[in-house]
Nucleic acid binder design. Structure first.
Lengths: 334, 334
DNA sequence: TTGCACGATGGCAGCGCTGTCAAATATGCC
DNA sequence: GGCATATTTGACAGCGCTGCCATCGTGCAA
């Protein structure tokens, strides 16, 4: 095992003190151009990489933050990771990807253990970890910086990156209303995700803005999964008169609706329009391709990491959503 | 920011030397039951967590391994991560999840940088990072332990966890032959994934074992994506006689085939049978639900992490695959 | 009784860096 | 030219642990 060079060996070869090498590595000022070049050359030649552990131990920063998630959707997790990781690596930080169990009574102590063990400089929270008040309180108490992605509770405190779920859901609903639909079913997602209630709110507002009475019977409960979407759809489609459109709180549930429609030989979009939410990979893999609200998951995570690490930014950013009209929506049947 | 307790504070309160606390934390022998209990009690009371950085710096192990991946499939990455992470955390290791660009000329140096910076104890490679000879050579040269998940090249050297892709593809093909299909199209995946060629091999072997001549015209090239699967399907379906079944190298491509069939109003499975590979979430989200070969992705990663960290195990493990017969396969049309 | 192995504990160097302070040298200004 | 100030560099402690060696005590064979 060829042992890695240390900062001292670099300094010996470059003919400077090891403190000067440290200055070069950390891009500090007060190093002459000449010296800097010489040191950098040796660093490159030896392929020297400073020990992260030593930096963490000696310094007051660890250059490590963690992304906490507890989400069953591979698509969502994958893209959240990508966005956050990209920004972190651009800024020279390491990102620890940490799945947690947000329902566990030990959540807070598990997260604190991670923070202490890894000397974290901050944490990024994604839904539904964003909604655990005990965790937020403890982070506040310890003064540890954190950013939330799409927070529901305490929307206006702390740093956060989000989209406007209410407005997005309103647009979806207005798209359907514009196509002549009046009986529009809504399948809501997991209760623990606050976006669930925001989207329901947007749906309601759009109806009322167009003089359509909100009917609680047209709202079915789902659990964000394909299966639960199918079950909710069956429930809605059994009603008389049958809804001519269904708006599902995410794409998985919308795919469930679509499968039930196929099974029952209901033509989509001829007899039934379907809209999802997220624009996940799934939206383009089902048939017909799903009309859905695109949520910039990756960009949200990128923005969150940026908020954490480049603190001059505004504490709250809102990114744009976009309705992707594909082939599961059409004019309401007569 | 309440500052974390250190091992010295624990030792002071417990009335022992800090070295003894270290012994308790590392579960070393030569500590009396009495002392151990006392120390553990203080550790729990203070909520003490040893600094990972200090352990890494002082000791000869870092208790850190990395999982390297470069795979476009969220489903695959998500499950690989879960399996590896579970085994690592069971054994007290931290797993660094590291996306890499396997096509980059800097791959080797980037990975070596990570190894040095983090003092990694080992790395887990997933396809297609498993197939980069320069990387394997350099790891060998440095004597750093590594495990490969589903390796293609150099199958019989080093530690690895895999399924038998050839046998699995043979079973898929035999399922179709058993249903009376004789014109069976095959859509292969990315060239850089060796499993692509193994699956093609299995397809070929099954045909030949049943006296069906292998026809290269029935093999189309895909790139593991939904879109490429659709394109390959169009190509195959334009032929005369039209194949009565298509075996796609993964589920995304199979979903692409299914979409093309819907579009062209070809009944599945009445006029065309389709099989995928992986049993990803997608397989159950499309309609009709996809017949596919289940690959235990999560278990593979779990086994790989176990090989890495519990070195008494056999260096190579093969896990079982399983054909999931759903609704896209049926008897060949007359 | 002596001698010795072994279990239990402590002492201390040192892992590879950063923070702090001091020293040496250069620069500016009246 | 002289003194204040800035720039550049070095010396050294110490971050919180583990590895190694020393020490002390105890039980047991000779």
């Amino acid at each position: 095992m060829s042992s890695r060079p240390t900062i001292k060996e670099v300094s010996k070869i470059a003919g400077v003190s090891f403190k000067t090498v440290s200055r070069v590595l950390n891009n500090e000022k007060h190093v002459s151009e000449e010296t800097r070049r010489r040191v950098e050359e040796v660093v490159a030649r030896l392929n020297f990489r400073p020990s992260h552990a030593a930096r963490t131990l000696a310094g007051r920063r660890s250059f490590q933050v963690a992304l906490l998630y507890d989400n069953p959707s591979p698509y969502y997790v994958y893209h959240i990771q990508l966005g956050a990781q990209q920004r972190c690596s651009e800024l020279g930080y390491r990102l620890l990807l940490q799945p947690v169990d947000s329902q566990s009574p030990d959540l807070v102590s598990n997260v604190m253990a991670l923070i202490d063990e890894a000397h974290l400089d901050g944490v990024i929270l994604s839904p539904p970890v964003t909604e655990m008040p005990a965790l937020l309180d403890e982070l506040d108490r310890r003064g540890l910086p954190y950013v939330r992605i799409a927070p529901g509770a305490r929307k206006d405190s702390g740093m956060a990156a989000a989209i406007d779920d209410v407005a997005a859901a309103r647009e979806v609903t207005e798209h359907l209303i514009g196509l002549g639909h009046r009986q529009i079913g809504f399948i809501r997602g997991l209760e623990s995700h606050v976006s669930t209630w925001d989207r329901l709110q947007g749906y309601r507002e759009a109806l009322e803005a167009h003089g359509i009475t909100f009917d609680p019977e047209l709202v079915a409960a789902g659990e964000n999964s394909f299966t639960s979407g199918g079950e909710a759809a069956r429930q809605l489609l059994d009603r008389h008169p049958r809804p001519t459109a269904i708006f599902a709180g995410n794409d998985d549930m919308a795919a469930g609706v679509l499968a039930v429609a196929h099974e029952a030989d209901i033509d989509v979009p001829g007899q039934l329009s379907i809209v999802g939410f997220d624009d996940s990979d799934l939206a383009r893999a089902v048939w017909p391709p799903l009309t859905t609200m695109r949520q910039p998951v990756r960009e949200l995570a990128y923005a969150a990491a940026n908020l954490m690490l480049a603190p001059d930014a505004e504490p709250r950013v809102t990114l744009d959503h976009k309705l992707m009209v594909r082939s599961t929506t059409g004019p309401a049947p007569r």
